[in-house]
Design a protein around this nucleic acid. Structure first.
Lengths: 224, 224
DNA sequence: TCAAAAGTGTTAGATTTACACCCATGA
DNA sequence: TCATGGGTGTAAATCTAACACTTTTGA
């Protein structure tokens, strides 16, 4: 009989806010809840934390299960612990956000799980406190994007400067001046111009850039 | 038999990083652990989350128990969930930081609990992952202090500009130019100069200031 | 009389913002 | 030929950082 056993245990789950960027909009992956309580409601995807796994691993496992993807950028948003947050039982949930390139995510898998990419500005009412989680995640992600080069996780390996600008505009919900933006990009040597040209989004074509992580770690000084 | 019961529950605790400011140093309240495992090790103060209380209330309760104080500024740091973080059992802990004025905290209570104010730069090795919690809390608090007027929670209601400057220096670990600092303070009308003079810390005496929260909410624009 | 902390402005440099036109191409 | 998105530089304004001396008073 230990000291611990005087206290009660609770269920702990993780919920994933999966961000994507498409059609110049910041999107979140949500689905219809498959179980009671709340069956049929829009919801984030989550899962229970097992006895032998860390919170981080539980979040990773959940994401991998859903997307088939590994080594995805994830960060903890925080713990949500109101007593009645879950209408069924007392469950404490730890939210994580993840950044993926929507192109890396198979449509097949998306449909299998019945998930949808929804504009973050047009989110429906979600199950439990999931809206709150998304807003907090967005806020943290936005902040992190200003000081660390994590935005590239939402883009293909090769991207145009306009794409990058639209991403920052979508995340920050504000227009950015094209010339000022490009000026700042040019100062960051780890954002490398390639000789490749994208002809999809314009007639003239636009140079494709890539983020060089190794160069970043050496040069390292980011600010947008 | 519900869906929930297929999964296992875990113990959840809260740990408090209590910040204080004294002798121009940022301090953290720590004590010797009174129970096994880890009896006698330096540790943060924490407690288990009960079945019928939210995480926030558990943190508040823990803090009140320890300090006798209510309505203290607290913010969540995050959830710490490595499987073996606690040497005894699997416990997930959610850390919170609190800002108090050391003068408001009774010496008597401090001694009863065997707690010590320790400079954040001279922390000993703490129990479990508590050092990590403190560092994370410090980082978050530092960041928040730049954009929100929360520093006043660490000072008496009346304070001198030098005290305020020393506080920012201690939290940010960097010297600040006196004239530039005072210039910025003068622009914030919610930091009000009183006619009172503090004669304790200097022969000449220094004007005492106070933070006017109401004025802040109306005027509201803070940046240090 | 002197040590110790309080108080006070100016200037150069760096950063940020605003702003408008030509280019290349496919339809 | 024209509509669409790509690409480029400069100047004004703002913000930031550096810097030194006088005041007051208790010991």
């Amino acid at each position: 009989m230990t000291y611990y056993s005087e206290h009660s245990k609770v269920w702990v789950s993780v919920d994933c806010i999966i961000f994507g960027f498409d059609e110049n909009k910041l999107k979140v992956l949500i689905g219809r809840r498959q179980m009671d309580p709340g069956r049929g409601e829009w919801s984030l995807y989550g899962g229970f934390v097992a006895a032998d796994e860390s919170l981080d691993s539980a979040a990773e496992r959940t994401l991998t299960e859903l997307t088939g993807m590994n080594h995805v950028f994830m960060r903890q948003v925080g713990a949500f612990g109101n007593v009645d947050r879950d209408p069924g039982e007392r469950v404490i949930s730890v939210a994580y956000y993840a950044l993926i390139d929507v192109k890396d995510y198979s449509e097949k898998l998306r449909r299998e799980y019945g998930l949808e990419w929804v504009n973050i500005n047009e989110l429906p009412r979600l199950y439990s406190d999931h809206n709150e989680m998304v807003m907090k995640a967005w806020q943290l992600m936005k902040q992190k994007m200003r000081t660390e080069p994590i935005g590239f996780r939402l883009l293909p390996q090769l991207f145009t400067l306009t794409q990058l600008q639209r991403l920052y505009e979508a995340v920050g919900c504000e227009e950015i001046d094209k010339r000022n933006f490009r000026k700042r990009i040019k100062e960051m040597d780890f954002i490398e111009k390639t000789e490749l040209i994208d002809k999809l989004s314009s007639k003239r074509g636009a140079y494709l850039y890539r983020f060089n992580n190794k160069a970043f770690r050496e040069d390292s000084n980011f600010k947008l």
